[in-house]
């Protein structure tokens, strides 16, 4: 991701110096960070916290988890694959500028999971993702402790990372910064005072979450009919298949492509891809109407298996990074963390 740093700089910046740093960085990078959008939350008078381009430090929401993950910077909710003019397909131009994304350790691990799918699964890298991925540097937003009750990064082993170009801690109006990437170092203001700062990481989840052993889980699936366990029937009664867990997830990477013709000019149009979700109807619909996993409990099971079993069998690490966004967004209060702990219990009891 980046070369071994030749000289890591650790500094403390005042508010003004921090903005100078961002200004300097902005000369070369588009800066993305979680921001608060007042009144744009799901419920009235509540804010949305989302990734957006920032220019000053005070715009960055340091304290809370973003509702939607930073995956949308690499993998937009909706993306035009081709413009379709008569019979010609033309790729749209993507913004050519490099990007620096402020994100948390779990999300940095999440990007590695997206890499597994988009770059490493199948015969070749996915070009739209790969292009953006090549233009991105990662700035760690330090979490010294879990952000809230939904976090379970420690259980997933995604609480720590060194895969970042720089790291920041917001410290009483000042910014502690560690810069490891040679390209970023010149952006530090000359006045920056040296500081003893290396990022800390959470060492315990607010609630213990027990991740099932993937190989034991495979044996339970294959030899003991685990998919028929009554726990899935219980989720069938609770899950409403709204798909929020998928859309908020840092690592859900499924998409659907479709074509449209512009109403005003039917010989022109687009081939777009949009996020798709294994919980939402029509995900498996085939021409002619046959669908798989019609029932919501089997969708919950399918997603859960992907996150803590299937992906592991392919890539040797779990897809879930414990960011907790699924739990924070579920309108039916289904806790994925509780689900995987329950699976572990079922395996123990066997």
């Amino acid at each position: 991701m980046h070369d071994t740093p030749s000289e890591t700089r650790r500094v403390r910046l005042s508010c003004e110096e921090a903005d100078i740093l961002l200004d300097n960085l902005a000369a070369h990078y588009r800066l993305f960070a979680p921001v608060r959008l007042p009144g744009r939350g799901r419920f009235s008078d509540q804010d949305a916290i989302r990734y957006a381009e920032v220019h000053t430090v005070h715009e960055i929401e340091h304290a809370r988890r973003s509702h939607f993950s930073p995956k949308e910077i690499l993998f937009p909710v909706s993306q035009t694959l081709f413009y379709l003019m008569d019979d010609a397909l033309q790729e749209p131009q993507d913004d050519p500028r490099d990007m620096l994304v402020f994100l948390r350790a779990c999300d940095i691990h999440g990007i590695a999971r997206l890499d597994d799918i988009f770059l490493n699964n199948g015969p070749e890298p996915e070009p739209y993702y790969a292009r953006r991925r090549a233009r991105i540097k990662l700035a760690l937003l330090e979490c010294r402790h879990s952000l809230d009750e939904h976090c379970f990064c420690v259980a997933m082993g995604t609480n720590r990372t060194d895969a970042y170009a720089m790291a920041v801690r917001c410290d009483e109006g000042q910014l502690l910064v560690e810069v490891r990437d040679d390209d970023l170092r010149p952006a530090l203001p000359a006045s920056a005072a040296p500081a003893d700062f290396t990022p800390e990481f959470p060492t315990a989840d607010p609630q213990p979450v027990v991740v099932p052993d993937a190989d034991r889980l495979q044996s339970a699936i294959r030899d003991h009919g685990f998919f028929a366990h009554p726990m899935w029937a219980d989720y069938a009664k609770r899950c409403i298949a709204c798909g929020r867990c998928n859309t908020h997830c840092m690592t859900c990477s499924c998409f659907t492509a479709y074509d449209i013709a512009y109403t005003e000019q039917p010989n022109a149009g687009e081939r777009r891809r949009v996020w798709a979700s294994c919980h939402i109807d029509r995900f498996t619909d085939m021409a002619g109407g046959h669908a798989f996993r019609d029932e919501n409990g089997s969708r919950m099971r399918f997603k859960t298996m992907h996150k803590i079993h299937d992906f592991y069998q392919r890539f040797g690490r779990h897809m879930c990074v414990g960011c907790g966004r699924c739990d924070a967004s579920c309108p039916e209060y289904i806790s994925f963390a509780t689900c995987i702990s329950a699976i572990s219990r079922v395996l123990e009891e066997r």
Partner: peptide, 24 residues
């Protein structure tokens, strides 16, 4: 197997069954 393959490249997820991608 017949599934609703969309990308054909092992990315889009529509054809995934357990750890297998039908398209690849």
């Amino acid at each position: 197997y017949e599934r609703r393959m969309s990308c054909g490249l092992g990315k889009c997820g529509h054809c995934k069954i357990n750890e297998k991608y039908v398209c690849v």
